[in-house]
Amino acid sequence: MILGVPWWVFMLIMFIFLSGYMAFRAMRAERRLEQQYIEQEGMVYIDRMEQERHEKHRQRQHMS
């Protein structure tokens, strides 16, 4: 007993804090992965828009 409290109570409290910390880390990593996915999809969209712009420009030059 430590300070009149059984040792397993301190271990339980330590595991609760450890679990919270691990959940926080997982949440942060998931947010980072989600942000990378969003940026990647944004780049795909921008590239597609650039290709369409070039294609329209090429068609206009071909018609003139």
Results as ranks from 00 to 15, higher is better:
1 M>T: 10
2 I>P: 00
2 I>V: 10
3 L>I: 06
3 L>P: 00
4 G>W: 00
4 G>I: 01
4 G>A: 01
5 V>E: 02
5 V>M: 04
6 P>A: 03
8 W>H: 06
8 W>D: 03
9 V>P: 00
9 V>M: 03
10 F>N: 01
10 F>H: 04
11 M>T: 09
11 M>V: 09
12 L>A: 05
13 I>G: 02
13 I>L: 05
15 F>L: 09
15 F>D: 04
15 F>A: 05
16 I>D: 01
16 I>Q: 01
17 F>N: 02
17 F>P: 00
18 L>W: 05
19 S>P: 00
20 G>I: 02
20 G>M: 03
20 G>D: 01
21 Y>M: 02
21 Y>N: 06
22 M>V: 12
23 A>V: 08
23 A>G: 07
23 A>I: 08
23 A>F: 04
23 A>P: 00
23 A>L: 10
23 A>C: 09
23 A>K: 06
24 F>A: 06
25 R>D: 02
25 R>G: 03
26 A>E: 10
27 M>K: 13
27 M>D: 12
27 M>W: 14
29 A>W: 04
31 R>M: 08
31 R>D: 06
31 R>S: 09
31 R>Q: 09
31 R>I: 03
32 R>I: 08
32 R>E: 09
33 L>S: 11
33 L>G: 08
34 E>W: 05
34 E>H: 10
36 Q>I: 07
37 Y>G: 05
37 Y>E: 12
38 I>D: 05
38 I>P: 00
38 I>L: 08
39 E>K: 06
39 E>D: 14
39 E>T: 07
39 E>S: 08
40 Q>H: 13
40 Q>R: 14
41 E>T: 09
41 E>V: 09
41 E>N: 15
42 G>L: 01
42 G>I: 01
42 G>Y: 01
42 G>Q: 03
42 G>A: 06
43 M>H: 13
43 M>V: 13
44 V>M: 11
44 V>F: 06
44 V>G: 04
44 V>E: 11
45 Y>D: 14
46 I>E: 07
46 I>T: 08
46 I>V: 14
48 R>T: 11
49 M>A: 11
51 Q>P: 01
51 Q>G: 10
51 Q>E: 14
52 E>F: 05
53 R>K: 15
53 R>Y: 14
53 R>L: 11
54 H>L: 14
54 H>S: 15
55 E>H: 10
55 E>G: 05
56 K>L: 12
57 H>S: 15
57 H>T: 15
57 H>E: 15
58 R>H: 10
58 R>M: 04
61 Q>E: 14
61 Q>F: 07
62 H>P: 00
64 S>R: 12
64 S>C: 13
